[in-house]
Amino acid sequence: MKKTILLFCILWAVNFASAQEDINITKYQDSRLKEAVPSYALSKVEKLISKLKQSSESLNQDTKNDISKLSDKDFEKLSVKEKFTYTMLYPESVSKNNLNIPAISDEENKIFGYLPDFKSNKKWSDRQISFLTSNKKEVIALIKESCLKDKFIGLNYKKALVKVKAIEAIPFLIDFYKYKDSKDKDILTALSLIVKDGRYFHYIRANIYKDLYGNDDKPVEESYIDDTASNEEYILKTASNFYIQYPKNKM
């Protein structure tokens, strides 16, 4: 009887520990996928999006992968701030190769080479990407203002900064990571991607770069390094050096 009770206790403890680990993994994954909500013309944009979602839900089964979106005429009528909020909250295209990250043990102690895709399995349309890149200065300014207000950098903001190759935002990202949210390792990922896209010679030849991006056969969700103090410091210092050395007239 005592042996049975002891065995039961051991099994319960093992299952409880396993369940607790799964909860922790899910919690951190959810934090990685959390998106920011811009406040600019939010009420107006939310009403537009609500109508579009209702229209999408009424599509035929054969067109279930289609997404209702504003006409080009209505899209162009929006101000820069309205387009920004609309783009951050409502990606207009479906992602065919969504990066569904599997559960990874000790995920919060890793620095990933890539940002995950949106949880909604969506991606920005060509016109939304064109808006972001052609209004790069304004987009960066709005992201900075919003992040400082909310003390949070959502996945959509990180992806936007990477998409527009926001070298100008490197000092902001470094400061935000150091003094506001050092638990958000995807800020380091965003910095790494901006430096990578800038083809910074000193980074490309580094071992960390090879570990993150040097194996084309490795699935992108498995491209990560351990979050050690030395790895963090290297990414932060490399990004800072890249910003300092990059010609300002090219930004």
Rank of each mutant, 00 (worst) to 15 (best):
L42Q: 06
S68C: 05
Q29R: 12
A166V: 08
T238G: 00
S58M: 12
K47G: 10
Y234H: 13
S95I: 13
N15I: 07
L148S: 10
I104L: 09
S134C: 06
N24F: 05
P171D: 01
S223H: 01
E168Y: 05
N98S: 12
N60P: 00
K136R: 12
S240W: 04
R205L: 08
K34L: 14
S39R: 08
L173C: 05
A36M: 07
A190Q: 08
D62I: 13
P171S: 01
N241D: 08
K237E: 12
S95R: 11
E221W: 12
L115V: 15
Q54A: 05
P91E: 03
L148T: 09
E222C: 04
A103G: 09
K136F: 02
A41P: 04
L148Y: 06
D30V: 03
L99M: 11
K51D: 15
I208G: 00
K81N: 13
E138A: 06
N121M: 13
N24K: 03
I143L: 09
E46W: 00
N24G: 00
S146P: 09
A206I: 03
T228M: 02
S55R: 07
S56C: 04
V45D: 13
D126E: 14
W12C: 12
L33W: 14
S130R: 15
L161K: 02
K250N: 06
I187G: 00
V195P: 02
E82Y: 01
I140N: 04
Y177C: 00
I140K: 05
I244K: 03
C9G: 03
K77S: 12
K77C: 12
P171Y: 01
D117I: 06
K73I: 14
N121I: 13
E145H: 01
K44V: 10
K158I: 10
L155D: 07
S58I: 11
T238Q: 03
I104M: 05
P116K: 09
K53L: 10
F176P: 02
M88W: 03
K158D: 04
Y177H: 11
A239K: 01
K159Q: 14
K27W: 08
I187W: 00
D62Y: 07
S146A: 14
H202E: 14
S146D: 15
Y114V: 13
Y209A: 09
D211G: 03
L148C: 08
D186R: 05
A206T: 11
S31N: 10
K83Q: 15
M251D: 07
F152W: 08
A141F: 02
M88A: 06
F242A: 11
G154C: 09
I208N: 03
